[in-house]
């Protein structure tokens, strides 16, 4: 009972802090910086979700932009359909907007999770780079399907019936509330019994199987969860952009996500968070370079892989880094 109360108090406190930070951010920053902050939050969701499958479980998806697209289109479409219903039931105030927005996000996550299940069930039998190529293939197929879906606006993209686009529901508060929720969920999952089984799959799938770990079921579950988080990010992205278009979910987007998780360190949640922020900020800082920007971006990727393939943090978490300094104990064993 006491524990529940404490948790509820922490929950409320976190929401309040996010709300306060959001107010501060809107007051203190230009709209340009605010957008980068939102984008960084969305990236963090993407990275933390992708890290679950690529880092923790050791399976490799390079087509996650496809799931993000499913989430984005799903949330946008459901949101547009839902808004009049919510307005009738709850009025046109903030409550009604928040209700239909979050329901739309969940719907997008559901669609993305389901498509993750559909993709994952057959293909997770494959290992390593074959799986990578299949996910790439699925990502492209999903994009091509959206590109030809006339009821979703085909190449122009989908933005409801109003030319000014989807309502701009994606605020600092909602992005970071979702970031907090997803980080906590994924963190708890990673350090649970299930998470250890996932790590076992990464380390040695055959040995894990020999230890009676239901490898296929776990891999598919992790994949679906990862796809669903990408879906949430997609829904937030759609409502930030006020619209969705198929060309935003090209292979390059999947590469961006890969960069996020390898910069920070594959298998580290705090690393994924840092990586998500890094990509949002660095792409922005390099914008001046124009045609040279992507050349440098690619070089950066190569150099990281050669010089420090384990990323900034390796598989460690940020707090483990400090613990090491204090106690001087081995990190991998402290898990």
């Amino acid at each position: 009972m006491k524990r529940t109360l404490l948790r509820a108090a922490i929950f409320v406190a976190v929401l309040l802090v996010i709300y306060g930070l959001g107010v501060a951010c809107e007051a203190g920053f230009t709209e340009y910086v605010q957008r980068i902050v939102l984008l960084a939050g969305i990236n963090v969701i993407l990275a933390v979700g992708l890290n679950l499958i690529n880092g923790t479980t050791g399976q490799f998806s390079i087509g996650h932009a496809g799931f993000m697209a499913v989430g984005a289109y799903g949330a946008a479409y459901v949101g547009v359909q839902l808004a009049p219903v919510a307005h009738r039931a709850l009025g046109t105030g903030a409550v009604s907007n928040a209700f239909s927005f979050n329901l739309a996000l969940l719907a997008g996550a559901l669609f993305a999770g389901l498509s993750g299940l559909i993709v994952g069930l057959p293909s997770l039998r494959l290992r390593g780079d074959y799986l990578a190529v299949v996910t790439l293939g699925f990502g492209e197929i999903i994009r091509i399907l959206f590109n030809n879906a006339t009821f979703l606006g085909a190449a122009t993209g989908y933005f409801g019936d109003d030319p000014s686009g989807l309502p701009a529901y994606t605020t600092f508060f909602w992005v970071y509330a979702w970031v907090a929720l997803i980080v906590v969920l994924i963190h708890n999952l990673t350090f649970s019994q299930t998470g250890r089984s996932l790590t076992a799959i990464r380390e040695d799938e055959i040995a894990a199987e020999a230890m009676a770990t239901p490898t296929t079921r776990l891999k598919v579950t992790a994949f679906a969860i990862s796809a669903a988080t990408a879906g949430i990010a997609g829904g937030l992205f759609a409502h930030m952009q006020a619209g969705v278009r198929p060309e935003d979910f090209r292979f390059e987007k999947s590469i961006d996500m890969i960069v996020m998780i390898i910069v920070g360190g594959l298998g580290s949640i705090s690393g994924a968070i840092l990586g998500g922020i890094f990509v949002a900020v660095s792409l922005e800082l390099m914008r001046d370079l124009q045609q040279y920007r992507l050349v440098l971006y690619a070089l950066l990727l190569i150099v990281i892989m050669i010089v420090r393939p384990q990323g900034l943090l390796g598989r460690r978490e940020l707090y483990q880094l400090f613990r090491k300094r204090k106690a001087g104990s081995g990190l991998e064993s402290s898990r």
């Binding site: 340009y32 980068i36 619209g243 390059e252 987007k253 914008r287 124009q290």
Partner: peptide
């Protein structure tokens, strides 16, 4: 001139 690499999020950022 700012580059958006043909991406709508970057276009809005730009």
């Amino acid at each position: 001139t700012l580059d958006d690499r043909g991406d709508s999020a970057e276009a809005a950022n730009a």
